[in-house]
Design a protein around this nucleic acid. Sequence first.
DNA 1: TCTTCATGTAATAATAATAGTTACGAATCT
DNA 2: AGATTCGTAACTATTATTATTACATGAAGA
Lengths: 141, 141
Amino acid sequence: MLHALLHMAERERPMTSDELAVCLSTNPVVVRRTMAGLREAGLVASGRGHGGGWTLARPLEDLTMRDIYAALGEPMLFQMGNVSESPGCLVEQAVNHALDDAFRDAEAMLIARLGEVTLAALADDFKRRFAEHRARLKPHG
Amino acid sequence: MLHALLHMAERERPMTSDELAVCLSTNPVVVRRTMAGLREAGLVASGRGHGGGWTLARPLEDLTMRDIYAALGEPMLFQMGNVSESPGCLVEQAVNHALDDAFRDAEAMLIARLGEVTLAALADDFKRRFAEHRARLKPHG
DNA sequence: TCTTCATGTAATAATAATAGTTACGAATCT
DNA sequence: AGATTCGTAACTATTATTATTACATGAAGA
């Protein structure tokens, strides 16, 4: 998704799902499905018909990785998802009790960090790396 | 696995893979596969033939959840596994650069917490919950 | 209005990862 | 020898994710 948004930021006109699918080497329908979540969160807008496609709804400076995380439904950050669920099993309840705070703290910390990274900063860093990359390939150009 | 170890701690004799499989409602071969990792880490021992089975190699007081985490091969704690991989993709490299420290810190924090929880403490907590559970079911017994 | 282009979405298929099963060899005890 | 139990390879089943197909809906332009 980050790929998609950075690509979109560098274009004037909307990008179609087909174009994005090529960039991400995936399928247009998959693009639409995922972008739908971002649209509902107000991060992007979609237009139908001739000249339609996807556009950023906000400038990159106003978008953080946390926004995207939230827009994608705040998916579990940890593999041990069921640790915090607490079903009937008493052993799991004991484990939960021992680790709940740790997971909560770790999650809060990560989400705070996501909020500190704007897509504009990512785009800048990407451009710098891209320039380096080209310089390495063609040092005498 | 924690279920298995707590069960084993409450028995004098070794537990067979078949017995453990019933406790965990899974398959004996799956039990053997997973316990093999714990054995290689020195947490449990296995014996073959008549009277064989699985035994704890250390007392519960000396076992922490961190030991088990290490014995299982230190599996990724986070869903975003590839964030720290850094393949050719420059966008991912930029993301990695922005978040690597955050993930490292969060992981270190979680692992430290795992190291604070002994299986003995888990067992105690489990027993307390179990007693409560029985009292709730049969308050006048 | 009619055609073309693009998203919206449901239904289905393909793929990959995980878990379970079968089968048999090797080791151990009675 | 015979019963028991782990060790392990090969295979199957299940589940979750991703990809594809198909068609409906809406928007721009001739």
